[in-house]
Design a protein around this nucleic acid. Structure first.
Length: 266
DNA sequence: CTGGGGACGGGGCCC
DNA sequence: AGGGCCCCGTCCCCA
């Protein structure tokens, strides 16, 4: 599956995003404020909006998603992202002592006392295999694993704006930029998720085309477009129909070809 | 209808 | 950890 499908499918995939509708803290700058803008010089800092570098807000899955009614939210969570909060007190007072099967009654009492003492080393007999935290009861360990470590082992950082989840905070931050669009073109006001996307956009204003085809000297503003163009110089193109072996320079052309029923005709 | 160009999006990798 | 860059991809438009 194409990687870019993952997020775009949350929007109407047939249209470009409506930047104005997004709840962004980006500052849209009216174009007429820039009667004269530097045409020859590419970017950067003076063309890039200052908001491009403003910090963004981050959420983790441990906060917003609604928890089941029988599960209480983790206390002390994400003030420090990814930090492991101390095991809830209720863990050590749990009534589920399924792991303690001491046969002697006084021994049982001694164990019971230690189970009530969260600082007792002997009380921590159920250890998490993922983070080595210990719990006195199996249920305590189970709750810990359900709410924390298993979640950490899976994708743990989810986006506030959509359903996407990420294994790392950095990936989530990067994704959230696609919602906040902090990079705003000072010339036309269009917003982008990343500075280099804005740089590419600014080339549409300046006309700069730094990527040249070695075969025909045609120049492109976008490296991907040059790559696609290079396919046109190739006899055998990158994308091939499995049925008729015809090759195409672009995936979209191959898809059109397949949808048009060529393969059926063969 | 097909092929190609323009503009742009998003995840991953590398420094 | 964060930013820059790369790669792969889509969508739209036009000849």
């Amino acid at each position: 599956m194409p990687r870019s499908f993952l997020v775009k499918k949350h929007f109407n995939s047939s249209k470009k995003p409506n930047y104005g509708e997004l709840d962004s803290h980006a500052v849209l700058i009216s174009p007429f404020l820039y009667e004269r803008y530097p045409v020859a010089v590419i970017p950067q800092a003076d063309l890039l909006s200052s908001v491009a570098y403003s910090p963004i807000t981050v959420w983790t899955s441990l906060l917003p998603p609604p928890l089941p009614s029988d599960l209480s939210p983790l206390s002390g969570y994400p003030s420090s992202l990814g930090r492991v909060s101390p095991p809830p007190q209720s863990d050590t007072s749990s009534k589920d002592h399924s792991g303690s099967e001491s046969p002697v009654s006084d021994e049982e009492e001694r164990l019971q006392a230690k189970l009530c003492d969260p600082h007792s080393i002997e009380a921590e007999k159920f250890q998490c295999s993922l983070c080595t935290k210990s719990y006195s009861t199996f249920s305590g360990l189970a709750k810990h694993k359900q709410l924390h470590c298993d979640a950490q082992a899976r994708k743990s950082f989810s986006c506030k704006y959509c359903d996407k989840e990420y294994v790392s905070l950095g990936a989530l931050k990067m994704h959230i930029r696609t919602h906040t669009l902090p990079c705003v073109c000072k010339i036309c006001g269009k917003a982008f998720s990343r500075p280099w996307l804005l740089q590419g956009h600014i080339r549409t204003h300046t006309g700069e085309k730094p990527f040249s085809c070695p075969h025909c000297n045609r120049a492109f503003a976008d490296r991907s477009n040059l790559r696609a163009h290079l396919q046109t110089h190739s006899d055998v193109k990158k994308y091939q129909c499995k049925s008729c072996s015809k090759t195409f320079s672009r995936m979209s052309l191959l898809h059109k070809h397949e949808e048009s029923g060529c393969c059926i005709a063969h």
